[in-house]
Write a protein that binds this DNA or RNA. Structure first.
Lengths: 342, 342
DNA sequence: TTGTACGCGTTATCAC
DNA sequence: GTGATAACGCGTACAA
């Protein structure tokens, strides 16, 4: 007497046989139970248990032409900023039964083909871009074949994509203005790379605040970093060796701010007495610096959540206007900025 | 004159028609070009370009019964520790044409079913566990139906799984012993949660070093944290209010160490003079504390890389013995630990 | 070397 | 309410 082997993956046919019905009925029982008589439904459900049946989702996806998978293109997953956004994406996706596939494109050209393939072959239902660019080129025509896309955190000037982001310009303005209200005149700025749109907006916000005073802008107070601790530290070295060093610095990220604080202290300055610093992002770590970092709150988790929400709206066709969303970003005042000494 | 519409996804049939051959030939041209005459191959390749054909990977995966997707189960993706490991996973996976699906299981029971479904329905080819447990229960029989699994960073006592990890016990011993060599006797330990195997090993390493001196172990020098800054800070409060406060603390993570340093400084201590601290992980941030954190180097990226390597070995059948791998983890000496004052 | 024909597991369209 | 049957796109026996 051969036992029906349990370990081989059971298929719908097996269930049908066990229940003494057709595969069509099994499928209906699973998809639209209300269209099946209670009697057969129970038979089928029992059979499903008996043979240990699980729907073959690959086959199902294939048939339905949807994968329930979202691709998230992220510039650098080990950046705490991005991982928090992904967290937000995940939460919403999971709720709706979607999966998030992470595409970490550390400027690796190789991966690009893999991604675009994934997209064109409809292996993903949609995508979220955390960086500022698509990781590949798309012509206008090709763009129409792309699945729904939303940008998170950044803003794409060329591609007209729905976006969820904060008002970088105003946030930067507020941060700088806060330093001004404290009495600072010589305020420097450790900026992000030029090619990043949000860095440009933050820089403009800084400039706007500085220009507002009527004084001319000191270009040498603007130093570019790349969002690493090290670049923040380097920038401080440069700034403090200026003939007229700044009394305050607005940094485009907490990481650079932390690097800056570290370097300033190493050089013997007392913070915030000798130098005020304001960051941007409000990372968890920003609370655990001494002095605790005054910074702009960047709602990373919320950005992720809203981005996924926006995407799902499009996927589920509820969306009439897939407009962008602007999230709040307040200044979190802690202890790293105070009135200048003199 | 109707133009053949470009935007609809081209299928193999379209290519076949365009090239004047059968779909079988098209498939062969793509899969085993050497089995096709140069002439027809060129025709087909041209046709592929013309109609803009991309293989439908869902169909392909379905047919081949492999998804080229690896599921990574991670306790908390916003923890910098895990995101670095994921980075390592990604790199290797991408090289081999695999994708990494992130399953962030923040103790959310709901997701579990989704995961197990994913697994049973062969929608993933393998999985990497970054936590210490499977996010679901598996009976012994069910285990045989599971795809290849490897654990990263942790170690599973029940499940016999290939693992890549460091020697937590020895590392902890070394860290503690280093403090002893510096002259410390009153060494406390801010440990991780009890239920985590690696925390237990680190604690044992600490105990082993402490017991080695012949003195009795002061249980009140062992405080449990949960790998957050806050728990590190709280632990320090407790320890410093002891009648005989420690002169040094070994922390089970850099994050807790940073929280601890922050709190100690807030309480007016001068570091490292009044209190030596050693961390565990060697996070990027550990370099940018003052004093710079002495810590155990945890090769996160390497752990991820090796874990994926181990997994791919199994998937590609090259593996005879899917043994575990032990990675080096040296003590990185910086400035947060020095000889005690007295 | 190339074409024909079948099957993977599911869902959907018909009849009954 | 239920059962045949076709179809999704691809890969591969098998036959030519």
């Amino acid at each position: 007497m051969e036992q029906k082997q349990q370990n081989a993956t059971a298929t719908m046919k097996d269930v049908a046989k066990a229940a003494g019905v057709s595969t069509a009925t099994v499928s209906r029982t699973l998809m639209t139970p209300e269209k099946v008589s209670l009697q057969t439904r129970q038979k089928v459900e029992q059979a499903v248990m008996d043979v240990g049946y699980y729907p073959h989702s690959l086959a199902r996806s294939y048939k339905r032409n949807e994968s329930k998978t979202i691709l998230a293109i992220v510039p650098d997953i080990s950046d705490p900023f991005f991982s928090d956004v992904i967290c937000g994406l995940e939460k919403v996706a999971a709720q709706e039964g979607y999966f998030v596939l992470i595409g970490d494109c550390k400027h690796q050209q190789k991966q690009e083909n893999a991604f675009i393939n994934l997209i064109i072959t409809k292996q993903i239902d949609g995508m979220v871009l955390l960086g500022s660019n698509l990781p590949f080129d798309v012509s206008a025509e090709e763009q129409k074949n792309l699945p729904p896309i939303v940008m998170a955190n950044e803003f794409s000037p060329e591609l007209k994509l729905p976006t969820v982001h904060i008002d970088n310009l105003t946030s930067a303005f507020n941060a700088t203005h806060y330093l001004q209200k404290l009495g600072h005149k010589r305020i420097a700025c450790i900026a992000g790379p030029e090619h990043m749109p949000h860095s440009q907006y933050r820089l403009e916000g800084y400039k706007k605040a500085m220009l507002r005073t009527g004084e001319k802008l000191r270009e040498y107070y603007i130093v570019r970093g790349d969002f690493t601790h090290e670049s923040g530290a380097e920038a401080v070295k440069t700034l403090l060796s200026l003939p007229e060093p700044p009394t305050a610095i607005f940094c485009h990220s907490d990481i650079m701010a932390i690097g800056a604080m570290w370097q300033a202290k190493k050089l013997g300055l007392t913070l915030p007495d000798d130098l005020s610093i304001v960051g941007f992002d409000n990372l968890e770590q920003a609370k655990y610096t001494l002095p605790a970092l005054t910074t702009i709150n960047h709602p990373r988790d919320e950005i992720g959540r809203h981005a996924m929400l926006l995407l799902l709206e499009q996927l589920q066709g509820n969306s009439v206007t897939p407009g962008s969303r602007l999230l709040d970003s307040d200044l979190i005042i802690r202890e790293s900025a105070k009135a200048p000494k003199s």
